[in-house]
Nucleic acid binder design. Structure first.
Length: 877
RNA sequence: GGGAGUUUAGCUCAGCUGGUUCAGAGCAUCUGCCUUACAAGCAGAGGGUCACUGGUUCGAACCCAGUAAUUCCCA
């Protein structure tokens, strides 16, 4: 079989993905094994794969594939999120392009369009995940707006309402007066806009004095209910507690003091308009101020304004300034720039507006969710996020769950003509509820709340409802078999920015509805950024297309590229060159495979070098596996990968294979060959979670395999005990070999020219370890054990081993002397510092005995080195 | 404005309980090699005021305080 020199991923990846699928190897059903469950953070149903998904899902796949190889019943549940705001906005835009406006459609008509859109674009992202190699159980694919998921949302809303945890309340929303709708924060665009800052004098009651405030929105003066100053602002302390008159309408309002006020801005006195500014609203709550709502939903002045009723707020802004000036209360006008919010959709200036919304009380729910993290039942990786989590949970605010949208689960609240409200799953239920209140209301008199719930109100149930959507109304004993088996899930992989929105709430829902945590570990990824450190986004166009990357570097290459330098919680400045490194690694393994595959095997005695290398690699492999296990247990996935990368590239390819490799056109003995294949298999097992495709491909051709012997469902290497002494000895020999190579490099000698190496610090009865490997890889013709430096050699020190290599004559003795002298000076300095330390009584009495012993060893080594260096210097003369 | 984090080689990051010759790894760079698996490669080398200032300690990249830069979350 002719194997190409370069690994070509394209055909291989599709082949293995279909094989795995056909054989149902991603499928999981409950059985007697330990479960290992991961639920995907559901991506937007109509979204396309971006680099953030790539990182996130690669990590999940690594964890899942590793668990599978550890013999666990691995179950990775995929799915998508209906993403109400994002999806609705996309549908609205698409309809707009077709000349259809949302407000010309009925709710039902609009939803029909939305479903069409969802059916057309939904699931693209899941298909893309397959290209990446994601080993999800696709038969379990869920959507947050599946019927059973909707049912769960309604049931939870009703349940929380009955428990008194859902209530209606007033909240400040971003109001678009043109579209007549509330907008989410994401839909408001802030732009620096030239504005004018008007300084207006308010008359103080029973006094000749006035107080001057500065405002960019003078029309809201009519809604003022207080003036606020900083309590330590000496200009105003005497005025605190007095009252002033609102200009033009002469309403009497108090002067209050709060540290919120910025003394530097404007005049240092702030008008407080709770109905039309978020900060003012909060001040209003704090000081129990009345709310005067002077702007109507269409942006005109309301009756409460008393003046200018029905006129647009911007006309009124001009007019009121004139009127205030006429009243002699306008102090001055400044030109400034300030940030004004505009509607993303209509470009109208956003008005903060109070409106009735649904809320979830969080305090009761947050408590257990905080406890399980504090107690370490749910672990965050990296742990630094615990601080943020705690801070948020201890200061948790009620959750506004209503959204003025149509795409999503409609709020199961029903109103009669009087505005009285009941909560029920459907109209019949609502009528029954009203009847229970003693009200006789007909179906025609009842209307359902127009709003839908926040998207997170469905996804906070995700780890429960993907298995048993009706669990939220069941006792744990009645949960279905899936939920009982798979819940709690093990690892959740997600981005830190949704730690609160999603992760915290899932923990709350899990505790509330299953009485147990939803997952044991939360792995928080970083944000994928471009080289300039900017977040990757569609609008910047700085995000590479993941599918193109996969085509260029192979899925394995891209997976490595994503993981090589992305420790948990750290941002990942993405660069294609990392995928290149990943691809190169694939190629390296491929060529190791080519080498091994090309060997002819014979029944004969192994060489001494092969025996030594085989013994060492077995022991080193064992040590590395232990190290990798430890790193995984700490979720240091990048480091685990780097450890395996070095094990494969350096230890296996550069050292082991070079040591056992037969000469040109020579055969290899069976024993070494079998050991090599075995080691190669172990490497593939270890690497499979990271590079599933190439590892499976090589696995199949490394030996004759039965049809169903696939690596994906094989097992992790059986661990043996590592021999630390052996490994340390090999490290020494590596250094000796490196020294010989460096010597050659330095002296311009060809690697083909065999050298005679002499060693002083050992004897024939105490030889260097691994001398056959040394002999082969350093290309020696002999190893002599000597008591004196042989003539015509150059001495070198490797740790405490003194070795000599022949040099016809030293080409540049001066440079040699300088080098030695430099090292001698350094070592003497080092010795001095160690001696100083050891003669310090406080060190000797305070430091741990091991540390002192270590220092003594250091001192002895240094003395020895100095002695050798001095001898070498003398020999130079 | 409130809170949390980060700052170590050109880049991305390790450095765990303060103590191994502790200042590390990968990539990049430089030098020499087309050495019969691999130039997507091999061998070797250089590269750091551990952000700054002060403190604690026998001893600080690590602990404490302050300063600066920067990122994120909430407002």
């Amino acid at each position: 079989m002719e194997i190409p020199k370069q690994y070509n991923p394209a055909s291989i990846e599709d082949k293995w993905y279909s094989t795995w699928m056909e054989k149902g190897l991603f499928r999981s059903v409950p059985d007697g094994r330990e479960s290992f469950t991961v639920v995907i953070p559901p991506p937007n149903v109509t979204g396309v794969l971006h680099m953030g998904h790539m990182l996130n899902n690669t990590i999940q796949d690594v964890l899942v594939r590793r668990a599978r190889l550890q013999g666990k019943n691995a179950c990775w549940v995929p799915g998508t999120d209906h993403a109400s705001i994002a999806t609705e906005a996309k549908v609205v835009n698409k309809l707009h392009e077709q000349g259809i406006e949302k407000n010309s459609l009925s709710r039902e008509e609009f939803l029909k369009h939305a479903w069409e859109w969802t059916d057309k674009h939904g699931g693209i992202i899941l298909e893309q995940l397959k290209k990446l190699g994601a080993s999800c159980d696709w038969e379990r694919t869920k959507f947050t707006m599946d019927d059973d998921m909707n049912r769960a949302v309604t049931n939870v809303f009703i349940d929380l309402y009955k428990k008194g945890l859902v209530y209606r309340g007033v909240r400040m929303v971003n109001w678009d007066p043109k579209a007549q709708t509330a907008l989410s924060d994401e839909e408001v665009i802030y732009r620096e806009t030239p504005s004018r800052l008007f300084h207006v004098r308010y008359q103080i009651k029973d006094s000749d004095q006035t107080i001057t405030i500065a405002t960019t929105r003078p029309e809201t003066i009519l809604g003022d209910t207080a003036i606020c100053v900083h309590p330590e602002d000496e200009r105003y302390t005497s005025l605190i507690g007095k009252t002033v008159f609102v200009p033009l309408v002469n309403r009497e309002i108090p002067i209050i003091a709060d540290e919120y006020v910025d003394r530097e801005f404007g005049t240092g006195a702030l008008k407080v308009t709770p109905a039309h500014d978020v900060n003012d609203y909060n001040l209003g709550i704090k000081y129990n101020l009345p709310v005067v709502d002077v702007i109507a939903s269409d942006g005109t002045m309301s009756a409460a304004a008393q003046l200018y009723i029905g006129r647009d707020r911007f006309d009124v802004r001009k007019q009121i300034v004139k009127d205030i000036d006429a009243a002699g209360q306008l102090d001055k006008i400044e030109d400034i720039k300030n940030n004004v919010g505009y509607s993303e959709r209509t470009d109208a200036v956003i008005e903060p507006r109070l409106s009735m919304q649904w809320f979830v009380k969080m305090e009761v729910l947050a408590k257990p969710a905080l406890d399980v993290v504090n107690e370490g039942k749910v672990k965050l990786h990296p742990a630094k996020f615990i601080n943020t989590y705690k801070y948020w949970m201890e200061n948790v605010k009620d959750w506004c769950i209503s959204r003025q949208l149509w795409w999503g689960q409609r709020i199961p609240a029903w109103y009669d003509n009087t505005g009285d409200v009941v909560v029920a799953a459907n109209l019949e239920g609502a009528m029954a509820e009203f009847a229970a209140k003693g009200k006789n209301v007909t179906a025609a008199e009842i209307r359902q709340d127009e709003d839908v719930v926040d998207t997170w109100f469905s996804s906070w149930l995700w780890p429960i409802t993907v298995f048993d959507a009706d669990a939220v109304i069941k006792n744990p004993a009645d949960f279905n078999a899936d939920l009982k088996y798979y819940y709690p899930t093990k690892d959740l992989v997600t981005a830190p920015e949704i730690l609160f929105f999603w992760v915290a709430r899932m923990i709350m829902a899990g505790m509330e509805y299953c009485g147990d945590i939803p997952f044991s570990n939360v792995y928080l990824t970083g944000i994928v950024r471009d080289k300039q450190g900017r977040k990757m986004s569609k609008s910047l166009g700085n995000s590479p297309d993941p599918i193109e990357l996969i085509e260029k570097f192979g899925a394995d290459g891209v997976r490595l590229g994503m993981l090589l330098t992305s420790p948990a919680g750290n941002d990942l400045p993405f660069d294609e060159s990392m995928c290149e490194q990943g691809r190169n690694f694939s190629n390296k393994i491929w060529n190791a495979f080519r080498l091994v595959k090309g060997w002819t095997v014979e029944d004969k005695e192994p060489t001494q070098a092969s025996r030594e290398a085989t013994a060492w690699f077995g022991s080193h492999l064992a040590a590395t596996i232990a190290e990798v296990d430890d790193l995984f247990s700490k979720y240091r996935i990048s480091e685990a990968l780097m450890t395996l990368y070095k094990l494969t590239w350096d230890d296996f390819c550069a050292w082991y294979l070079e040591a056992v490799k037969p000469g040109f056109e020579q055969s290899i003995d069976r024993e070494t060959f079998e050991a090599t294949i075995g080691y190669f298999e172990d490497l593939l097992r270890l690497l499979h979670p990271f590079i599933p495709f190439i590892s499976e491909e090589i696995w199949q051709y490394l030996r004759e395999r039965e049809d169903d012997n696939l690596l994906i469902v094989n097992h992790m290497p059986k661990t043996v005990a590592a021999d630390a002494k052996l490994n340390a000895e090999f490290d020494l020999i590596r250094e000796v070999i490196a020294a010989v190579r460096a010597f050659r490099n330095d002296k311009g000698l060809s690697p083909k020219e065999a050298l005679r190496l002499s060693c002083k610090s050992r004897s024939a009865s105490n030889q260097l370890p691994f001398d056959a490997v040394l002999f082969k890889l350093a290309n020696l013709e002999a190893i002599d054990y000597v008591s004196e430096k042989p003539e015509g050699t150059l001495a070198m020190l490797v740790r405490t081993e003194e070795i000599f290599l022949p040099v016809g004559e030293i080409s540049d003795p001066e440079a040699e002397r300088e080098k030695l002298q430099k090292e001698l000076t350094y070592t003497e300095g080092f010795l001095t510092s160690v001696e100083k330390k050891l003669s310090n009584e406080r060190f000797v009495s305070n430091a741990k005995p091991e540390v002192v012993a270590m220092e003594q060893k250091k001192m002895q080594d240094a003395v020895q080195r100095i002695k050798v260096l001095k001898e070498q210097l003398e020999a130079l003369v």
